[in-house]
Structures are given as C-alpha cells and as structure tokens.
C-alpha cells in the first residue's frame, strides 16, 4: 500500500510538473487539451493553468523580439488577456494552442512597433533600424550575457529575428514556425538560412 501511494504521489507530481513548468509545446497534449476545454467553458483556473504552462515561452519570444524587458512584460500580460477574451474563437482542431498564443504574441509585437513607430520622432526611429556598420563587438562587451543576445538580435530584420526566436529560443519545429508566421516551410527554411548568415556576420570572427 505504501509503495502504491508513493507511486501515486510521484505520478501526480509528474503530471503537475508537466503542466506547470513545461518549456516546449507539448507533443502529446491530452492534459493541455483538458485545460483548454475547461478554459473554453469559462473555467478561469484552467486558463491560469495554461498561463503557467506558456508564460515563460511567450515572455521569451516577446523579449527577444522587442529587446526591452519592460515592454516584453507589458506585451506578455496583454497576450494572455487577449487570449482569454478571444478563447471562444480558438478552434481545437486547428492550430495547436501554443502556436495560437504565439500568433497573438506576434500580432501584439507588430501592433506595438506600429504604434511606437507612429509616435517616435524620425531621429529616434533610426535606432531601430539594423546598422551593419555598428561596432557590435564593442557594444556587446558592455552588456550582460542575456542582454548581449538581445542586442545582437535587434540588428536583424523583423522576419529574421522572429524565425530565429521561434526556432532556436522557443524550440519550435520548422512546420510550427511556418504555421505561426503564415508561410510555407520552404520559405521558413530560406529565411532561417538568411537569418543565420546575418547573425554569423554580426558575430564575426569572435565566435568561430
């Protein structure tokens, strides 16, 4: 009896850990599917469970897109509020839930840039454009490692930054990235190569 109790406790723990701290889109999503069904039925706790699963991933994606912690936090909060408000539109047989969240996150980033661009003076706007001549090595020396990567990513184009973040930081497969970005897989592979070439150019000889 004691052994079966221990097994039970461990297995519950594993089940909860899976839902509370996963960092990848679940391969087999039966628990997640249950949470989504409950959340769609109006269960706030279930949606909070989905929040726990995806908060880290969504934040990581947004942070590497915008390069600013405060903005990333603001946009991440908005993503989950929007997701709750629009959960009725989510079709379970369509995009995986994680991919659907990333789409919301992606649109939030785009909206943010659009709004930000409209309100910035021209001089300030220039700093968001990638500048291949800038001395990246000197700049990154001043930054901590986490910020270092964000600084480098900010020098890529929007599409390049997005594909690298989804693929290598959020760990999605090429097919999943294609769904989120609304492109064909072949286009994602081409974009991925151009992005890595641009990144390799920025990193220069120091990382070879």
């Amino acid at each position: 009896m004691r052994n079966s109790l221990s097994l039970f406790v461990v297995l519950i723990g594993v089940a909860l850990i899976d839902s509370a701290s996963a960092t990848r889109l679940p391969e087999s999503a039966s628990q997640e599917t249950q949470l989504i069904k409950q959340a769609k039925a109006g269960n706030a706790d279930a949606f909070a469970g989905l929040y726990d699963i995806y908060i880290d991933d969504v934040y990581r994606f947004i942070l590497h897109r915008v390069g600013n912690k405060q903005t990333a936090e603001d946009l991440t909060s908005q993503v989950f509020l929007k997701a709750w408000d629009n959960l009725g539109r989510y079709k379970m047989q369509g995009l995986p839930f994680g991919a659907w969240l990333f789409r919301i996150a992606r649109n939030s980033v785009i909206d943010h840039y659009r709004t930000y661009k409209d309100t910035l003076p021209l001089e300030a706007e220039a700093m968001f454009k990638p500048d291949p001549k800038a001395n990246v090595v000197k700049e990154v020396e001043r930054r901590l490692e986490g910020e270092w990567l964000q600084a480098v990513l900010q020098r890529l184009t929007e599409d390049q930054r997005e594909v690298l973040t989804l693929k290598f930081i959020n760990g999605l497969k090429t097919g999943e990235v294609a769904k989120i970005m609304g492109k064909r897989q072949g286009a994602i592979r081409a974009l991925q190569m151009r992005a890595l070439q641009a990144l390799a150019d920025l990193l220069g000889g120091d990382h070879e």
Binding site: T23, Y59, R60, T165, F168, I169, L199
Partner: peptide, 11 residues
C-alpha cells in the same frame, strides 16, 4: 551561429 542562440533559452 545557431548554437549561440541557446543562451536565449535561459531567459
């Protein structure tokens, strides 16, 4: 270059 992106997973 792709390997350097792994650092981003720690954020």
């Amino acid at each position: 270059a792709a390997q350097t992106l792994e650092k981003g997973q720690n954020v």
